[in-house]
Write a protein that binds this DNA or RNA. Structure first.
Ligand SMILES: [Mn+2]
Ligand SMILES: [Mn+2]
Ligand SMILES: [Mn+2]
Ligand SMILES: [Mn+2]
Lengths: 140, 140
DNA sequence: GTCAAAATGGAGCCTTGGCTACATCTCTAA
DNA sequence: TTAGAGATGTAGCCAAGGCTCCATTTTGAC
C-alpha cells in the first residue's frame, strides 16, 4: 500500500521549508569563511556590502549565528567562525561549487549558473549531491 | 572594466532573496491549480493538508494570494485562481516538471528529485530553463 | 593631538509565515 | 429536523529578516 498522496507531498514541502530556514545561515558562514581567507577579517560592513543588505541587518544575523553556535565576534574586531561554523562553511562551499559545475556541464551560461546556484544550493539533498558527483565524473 | 566583486555578489544574493519571497506564492498557485483540476475544488483544509501546515496558515496565505491578484475565494466555497493566477500556475507546473526531468536525467533517484525540485524550482532562471530544455532534447 | 568620517551597535518598525485557541458556519446522519 | 462533526474564519502570539534612525566607538587625515 502506497503512502497517501497528501502525506508524501506534505513531507516534500516540509523539507523545502526546513531547508529554507537554514539557507541564510549557510550563506553567511560561507561568506564569512571567504572573507577570512581572502581579506584576513570579516567585518559586519563588508558582510553587508557583499550580501547587499544594510549593516544593521548583517549585525542582527551575525547574532543569530552566535546563538546557533556557528560564529563569535569581538566588538569592533570582526566576526569569526567556531569549529562548527568552519565545518559548515566547508560543506557549503563544496556543495556550492558542485552545483555550479553541474549547471555549467548542462550548458547553463556562467553568470546564470553562479546566480541560480546561490539559491539552488540550499535545496540539494545528499542523494542528489552524490548523483551530481557521479554525473561529473562520468563526463570527465 | 569588470564590475566590483561585491556588486556582482550582492546582485546574486539579491536575486535569490527575491526568488525566495515569491516561492510560497508559486507553490500555492501550483497546488490550487492541481486541486481544481483533479478534485474540482480547492478547499483551505485540503490545501493545508497537502502543504503540511495548519488550516489557519493556509487561509492566511490565501489572503496574500488575493492581495497579489492571483486568487479569489468565496467564503465556505473554496479558492479559485484569477487569470493571472492560472498563467502563473501553468508556468510553475511546466518549470517544476522540467526540473524533475533534468534531475532524473542526471541520475538523481525519483523521490530525491521530487523533493529537491520542490525547493530548486523557485531559483531557476529563464536562461537556465532554456539550457535544461536543450540538455533534455540533446539526449532524447 | 584633534577632530571628522567611518564603522559598529542597538532600538524600533514592518511583513512574512508559522502556530494555537476560539468562534461561527455548513452539512450530514440519525 | 436537528445535533454534532467538520470546515472555515478570526485573533493573537512568535521568530526571522528586512529596513531606518540614532548613539557610540574607532580610526585616519591633517
Ligand atoms: Mn546561497
Ligand atoms: Mn553559496
Ligand atoms: Mn516548490
Ligand atoms: Mn512545485
Amino acid at each position: 500500500m502506497a503512502l497517501p498522496t497528501e502525506l508524501i507531498q506534505a513531507s516534500r514541502f516540509g523539507k523545502a521549508r526546513s531547508a529554507q530556514s537554514t539557507a541564510l545561515l549557510e550563506d553567511y558562514v560561507e561568506l564569512i569563511a571567504d572573507l577570512l581567507a581572502n581579506e584576513g577579517e570579516a567585518r559586519p560592513t563588508d558582510i553587508a556590502r557583499r550580501l547587499g543588505v544594510s549593516h544593521a541587518t548583517a549585525i542582527k544575523t551575525v547574532s543569530r549565528l552566535k546563538r546557533a553556535g556557528l560564529a563569535t565576534a569581538r566588538p569592533y574586531r570582526g566576526v569569526f567562525l567556531t569549529e562548527k561554523g568552519e565545518a559548515l562553511a566547508q560543506r557549503v562551499r563544496t556543495r556550492h561549487r558542485l552545483v555550479v559545475d553541474v549547471l555549467r556541464a548542462i550548458g547553463v551560461p556562467l553568470e546564470s549558473a553562479e546566480a541560480d546556484a546561490e539559491g539552488i544550493e540550499h535545496y540539494v539533498s545528499e542523494a542528489t549531491l552524490q548523483a551530481f558527483s557521479r554525473f561529473l565524473r562520468g563526463r570527465a
